[in-house]
Amino acid sequence: MRLFLGQRAWVLQRVTALVLLFLLALGAATLLTGPPLDYERWHALATSTHGAVLIVVFFAALGLHGWIGVRDIALDYIHAPMLRLALLAVVGVLLFAIVIRVVLTMAAHFAGGA
């Protein structure tokens, strides 16, 4: 897949790192300011339209960033092609499942109108 070769993967890794850094800082700033963090406030933040979108973006960036990182480690250390392919497939499916789970959870919440 050309998308994950050479400089594209390298750029994607850095772009997703910046997205994660920004969202982590935004999350920390949001949680550290305002009223004390209880369940109601946490729920309200996570289920607001902005909050839900940012959470999905965060996990999507995390999945992509994590997979490229694991791919880099595999390229360095695992030289058997089939073993490397299997590891990358397993990690890819796991990370993708996490992102899909987050998307489905958010979608279910908004579909339910809660």
Partner: peptide, 11 residues
Amino acid sequence: LDDVYRLFRCR
């Protein structure tokens, strides 16, 4: 050089 090995193995 735009290759996953030739250049981008540099960590």
